[in-house]
Amino acid sequence: MSALNSMPQQPMTADEVLRYVKAAARAMNLPLDENAARSVAEHLGRTAAMATLIDGVDLAAEDELAEIYRPAPFPIIANPEGAN
């Protein structure tokens, strides 16, 4: 079975990406002049196309994040004191 589902997704227009960049930059307190916003929007538009690919992957609820976080190293003691 293909990992990609068949739901079509309409990509954002260049103007929509630019408006998103300006709004998100405001939300993130990132000052951008018009030229910088356009350049950022060009990059984000390319990434949006890639995100569409990933969005099409049929991930199940139990598909968890790739992990790094560990609360502590796994204990090597076979039967820690007090454990049953």
């Binding site: 910088a36 990933i54 969005d55 992957v57 598909d63």
Partner: peptide, 26 residues
């Protein structure tokens, strides 16, 4: 610099789905 800024503005869903996909890809 504009690639870094574009990255900082990505929706959380893009990142989280990419990390979930990575585990399956592995």
């Amino acid at each position: 610099v504009h690639r870094f800024i574009a990255g900082a503005l990505q929706p959380a869903d893009w990142y989280l789905k990419a990390q979930r996909y990575r585990r399956r890809y592995r």
